[in-house]
């Protein structure tokens, strides 16, 4: 299934957001997630299905001013 992860085309076999994070080796990473522009809380990732063409954002703490 083709989706967009952090602006890049990606291919995934995962059915949920939690599954996608595991696939990307980020299951335990400190990240915040959004699906199609809306935030998905960590507690909701297991229950959040992803579909063809979805846009996923995976954000981490970063330097800032």
């Amino acid at each position: 299934m083709k989706i967009i992860v952090n602006g890049e085309p990606a291919d995934t076999a995962a059915g949920t957001l939690a599954g996608l994070l595991a696939e990307l080796d980020m299951a335990d990473a400190i990240v915040a997630t959004a699906l199609n522009g809306d935030m998905v809380r960590a507690a909701r990732r297991e229950a959040t299905a992803i579909a063809e063409g979805d846009r996923v954002e995976i954000l981490a703490p970063m330097q800032g001013g």
């Binding site: 990473a29 400190i30 990240v31 995976i58 954000l59 703490p61 970063m62 330097q63 800032g64």
Partner: peptide, 22 residues
């Protein structure tokens, strides 16, 4: 200190080490 949120890359995971430092 001010911090931000940016896209995390699967390989580098730069955000994780930054957050640990802070």
């Amino acid at each position: 200190v001010t911090v931000s949120l940016r896209r995390e890359s699967g390989a580098a995971k730069a955000g994780q080490s930054f957050w640990q430092l802070i």
